[in-house]
C-alpha cells in the first residue's frame, strides 16, 4: 500500500472512530445486555431469554408498540400532507431563487432551536384555559373547554408533526428543485392537465425525497419520548417512553431488550421504504 491509496482511510479514521465508540459499540452492548439478568437493583451478566419473553408476553408492552405505530402512521400522513404542498409552493410558485432560499430558511429556522421549548410553547395555546379554548368559547362554538387539546394523543401527534415536518420539507424541496422544468413544459405541450403533470411527472421524480423524509420521520417518531411526556401527560405511551422509564428504574436488561426490538422494527420500516423507492440517485 502506498501513501496515496492509504490517504482516504487515514482521513476518515477520526470520524469513524467516533461512530465506532459512541454508536456501534454501545448498540452491540445493548444487544449483549438484553440477554443479561436483573436481580432487582443491578444487572447480572449471563444468558437468558427472559427479557424478550417478558416483552412478547406482556399485553401492556404490546399495546404500547401498537400505540407507537399509530403515532408513526399519523405523524407520517400529517407531515407529508403539510410538507409536500409547502415544498411544491416554494419550488414551483416562487420564481426568484433568492426568495426560494429565503422562504426555505424561514421554514427551517425553528428546527435549530430547542425541542423542549417548542413543546412547552403549545401549553398556553392548547391548555384548558388556553388561547384556543378561550377563542372557541368566546365565539360560542363550544360551551365547555375542550379537554382533548392538551395531554392527549392528539397533542402528542400535533407536537411531533410540529417538531419533525422540517425533515420532510427539506428532502422533498431538494427533489423538486432538481426536476428539469423542460419535462413539465413538454408534458403540458402534449396536452397533460395540471393534475396529470403532478401525478405522472412530479410525483415520481419527488418520490426519493419523500422516501428520505419518510425515513427520518419514521425513525425520529419511533424513538421519541420527550414529546410523549410533555404533550401526552400521564396516559400516552410509546416505546421510547417505556424504555426511558425502565432505565429510570435501572432495569437495563429489560430496556435493552425493548431497544433491540425497537431497532429491529425501525430497520424493517426503513428497509420497506427503500424497497418501494430507490433513493440512490439522491445520495
Amino acid at each position: 500500500m502506498n501513501w496515496k491509496s492509504l490517504q482516504p482511510y487515514l482521513l476518515v479514521t477520526p470520524q469513524t472512530l467516533i461512530f465506532l465508540v459512541f454508536l456501534v459499540f454501545p448498540i452491540l452492548l445493548i444487544g449483549v445486555v438484553s440477554f443479561w439478568g436483573f436481580n432487582g437493583y443491578a444487572m447480572v451478566p449471563g444468558f437468558t431469554w427472559d427479557n424478550y419473553i417478558g416483552v412478547f408476553t406482556s399485553e401492556v408492552a404490546l399495546k404500547i408498540y401498537l400505540n407507537t405505530f399509530r403515532y408513526v402512521g399519523l405523524v407520517w400522513v400529517c407531515s407529508l400532507a403539510i410538507a409536500f404542498p409547502v415544498a411544491y409552493f416554494l419550488a414551483f410558485h416562487i420564481d426568484s431563487l433568492r426568495w426560494k432560499v429565503i422562504l426555505f430558511l424561514v421554514c427551517t429556522i425553528p428546527f435549530w432551536t430547542s425541542n423542549i421549548i417548542r413543546n412547552i410553547a403549545w401549553v398556553p395555546l392548547l391548555g384548558k384555559e388556553g388561547l384556543v379554548n378561550q377563542i372557541l368559547q368566546s365565539l360560542h362554538l363550544t360551551q365547555q373547554p375542550l379537554e382533548f387539546l392538551l395531554y392527549s394523543d392528539f397533542a402528542v401527534v400535533l407536537g411531533l408533526v410540529y417538531l419533525y415536518t422540517f425533515f420532510m420539507i427539506a428532502p422533498i424541496f431538494n427533489s423538486l428543485m432538481r426536476i428539469d422544468r423542460n419535462l413539465i413544459t413538454a408534458a403540458r405541450d402534449m396536452g397533460a392537465s395540471g393534475f396529470q403533470v403532478l401525478k405522472e411527472v412530479i410525483l415520481p421524480l419527488a418520490a426519493p425525497g419523500i422516501a428520505i423524509g419518510s425515513i427520518f420521520v419514521t425513525t425520529l417518531v419511533m424513538g421519541e419520548f420527550v414529546t410523549v411526556r410533555l404533550m401526552g401527560g400521564g396516559q400516552s405511551a410509546s416505546i421510547g417512553k417505556l424504555i426511558s422509564t425502565q432505565i429510570g428504574s435501572l432495569q437495563y436488561p429489560l430496556a435493552a431488550a425493548n431497544a433491540v426490538i425497537l431497532l429491529a422494527v425501525t430497520l424493517v420500516m426503513v428497509a420497506a421504504i427503500l424497497q418501494v423507492v430507490d433513493i440512490r440517485q439522491e445520495l
Binding site: 461512530f19 425513525t219 424513538g223 431497544a259
Partner: peptide, 30 residues
C-alpha cells in the same frame, strides 16, 4: 469501503435517539 462509512454516518442520524442514550449509558456502566 466509502459506501459503508457513508451508511454508518447516516445510521448515526436515524438510529432512534433513545438507543444512543441507553447504549452509551450501558457502556459506561459496564
Amino acid at each position: 469501503g466509502s459506501r459503508i462509512i457513508f451508511y454508518l454516518t447516516i445510521a448515526s442520524l436515524i438510529v432512534p435517539s433513545v438507543l444512543v442514550s441507553l447504549g452509551i449509558g450501558v457502556m459506561f456502566q459496564v
